[in-house]
C-alpha cells in the first residue's frame, strides 16, 4: 500500500467558512489547545504511554506538529469523561492504563533489560502484538484480559484521539465539520469545491490548486 496524498489540503482552512459553526470552532479550538503535560499520569508513566501511542499510530517523521496522542489519552481520564460502559473484567480506564503501562515496562525489563520507551520500534511492536494475541503472562498484568485491554482500551483510546484530530482528517481527505453548509454533490466521483481533492498520480498539481480553493 502506498500513501494517498491530498496536497495542500488542510481542514483547518475551512474554520471561518460556512462549514463550521461557533460550537464547532470552540470545540476544535479547545482540542488544539490540549495541555501537553500529563495531569493524570506521572511523568514516568506518560513517557511509556507516548512510546505506546507512537506505535499504535506512528506519524510521519517529517510532520511538524504531530498529534499529541498521549496528551489526549491523559486529558480524557483526567477530565473524568467515561465511556458509558465498563467490561466487567477490566478495571476503570485510568487504573487499567496504569496497570498496563507498568506491565509493559516489566515485559521490557524481562526481555531486554530496558524501559519500554527505550526499545526499538520492532521490539515495542513485538510486545504489543503479543498483548493483542493474549500471549503475555505474569502477575504484573494483575489478571487483566490482554486482548480486551489491547483492543478496547489501548487501541480504542489512541485511535479516538488521532481520528478526532484535524491533522488526521486532512491526512485521509475527510471533509471535516460541515454545518451549516453541508454538501450538495452526492454522486460518486463528485466533489464539492469545499472538499479535499486527491493528488492521484499525475494530478498532484491540479489537486494542489483545487485544495487552495477549499474554503
Amino acid at each position: 500500500m502506498t500513501e494517498r496524498s491530498f496536497p495542500g489540503y488542510d481542514v483547518l482552512d475551512k474554520r471561518d467558512t460556512p462549514s463550521w459553526n461557533d460550537a464547532t470552532r470552540s470545540a476544535i479550538d479547545a482540542r488544539l489547545a490540549v495541555p501537553r503535560e500529563p495531569r493524570f499520569f506521572s511523568s514516568d508513566e506518560f513517557a511509556t504511554l507516548e512510546a505506546v501511542c507512537d506505535r499504535i499510530l506512528p506519524q510521519p517523521a517529517d510532520r511538524q506538529d504531530p498529534v499529541p496522542l498521549a496528551a489526549y489519552v491523559d486529558a480524557k481520564i483526567f477530565s473524568g469523561q467515561l465511556d458509558g460502559y465498563r467490561f466487567d473484567k477490566l478495571p476503570p480506564q485510568g487504573e487499567a492504563w496504569k496497570i498496563g503501562l507498568a506491565a509493559l515496562d516489566h515485559e521490557a525489563r524481562d526481555r531486554h533489560n530496558a524501559r519500554f520507551r527505550d526499545l526499538s520500534r520492532a521490539d515495542r511492536d513485538n510486545i504489543l502484538r503479543e498483548m493483542q494475541q493474549g500471549r503475555l503472562e505474569g502477575d504484573h498484568w494483575q489478571g487483566m484480559p490482554l486482548k480486551l485491554f489491547f483492543m478496547k482500551r489501548v487501541v480504542h483510546d489512541v485511535t479516538d484521539a488521532y481520528y478526532g484530530h484535524p491533522t488526521a482528517w486532512s491526512e485521509i481527505g475527510f471533509g471535516g465539520p460541515a454545518s451549516p453548509r453541508g454538501y450538495v454533490r452526492m454522486d460518486k466521483n463528485r466533489r464539492d469545491p469545499w472538499e479535499a481533492a486527491e493528488g492521484k498520480p499525475g494530478q498532484e498539481e491540479r489537486a494542489l490548486v483545487e485544495n487552495k480553493h477549499v474554503v
Binding site: 500500500m1 487501541v155 491526512e171
Partner: peptide, 15 residues
C-alpha cells in the same frame, strides 16, 4: 485487528 502503519494507510482509503 490492525493498528500501526497498516491502520494509518488503510484509513487513507476513507473516500
Amino acid at each position: 485487528g490492525i493498528w500501526g502503519d497498516e491502520l494509518r494507510l488503510a484509513m487513507q482509503d476513507y473516500n
